[in-house]
Design a binder for these strands. Structure first.
Length: 185
DNA sequence: CCTGTGATCGTCT
DNA sequence: GACGATCACAGGT
């Protein structure tokens, strides 16, 4: 199988987000298949790009297939994959299959299900920081590899106060590694 | 199972 | 000066 190229990301963000579920993300060889992501674009009041370019969100207006990393609540890092200008996919959770020992060490020995079950936890487990902001995703330390076909469910996004109804959260159906289950319908 | 809260600081108004 | 695409822990059900 070929690694995923940056042209994969030069498509509508909703298509990319859906297709990312099941894709294997590794950072310096550590990670696993993505089980939860969210889409954001410039028309969306919850997006960092809603009010146009700023120094922080510059990577989201740069080339597709690069990382956008920012710090939230003064504490945690969050990793996004940049798509078409002003849009990106927030990487929220993965199944920790590669480098589990290192992830556990970085996460204080917490149980496997809690190693990467949230955007801040995932960055801590994979060692992602602002140093990765703007880096291409088809070049070390990043690796993106195709995974198995996935059954996907959608729902509203987590932790936002605007655009709360927009169902742009994509999850692997029945995964035990999500940050939260989908709401009951 | 659930809800509430403190931590902590960069970013933008 | 206010707030945020979060997390861990505490406490009650």
């Amino acid at each position: 199988m070929q690694p995923i190229s940056t042209t994969f990301f030069d498509r509508p963000v909703l298509d990319v987000a859906r297709d990312l579920i099941g894709t294997i993300l590794l950072v310096d060889g550590v990670g696993g298949p993505l089980v939860e992501v969210e889409a954001y674009d410039q028309t969306d009041p919850a997006s960092h790009t809603f009010n146009g370019p700023t120094p922080r969100n510059a990577a989201m207006f740069g080339p597709p297939g690069h990382a956008y990393v920012y710090k939230i609540y003064g504490i945690h890092w969050c990793l996004n994959f940049v798509c078409q200008p002003g849009s990106a996919v927030l990487i929220r959770a993965l199944e920790p299959t590669h480098g589990a020992h290192l992830m556990s060490e970085r996460r204080g020995g917490l149980p496997t299900r809690q190693l990467c079950s949230g955007p801040g936890k995932l960055c801590q487990a994979l060692g992602v920081t602002i140093a990765h902001n703007g880096m291409p995703l088809d070049t070390p330390p990043f690796q993106l590899l195709p995974g198995e076909p996935a059954e996907i469910n959608t729902g509203p996004r987590i932790g936002i106060t605007k655009g709360v109804e927009t169902p742009w959260r994509f999850v692997l159906r029945n995964s035990p590694f999500l940050s939260k289950p989908l709401p009951r319908q």
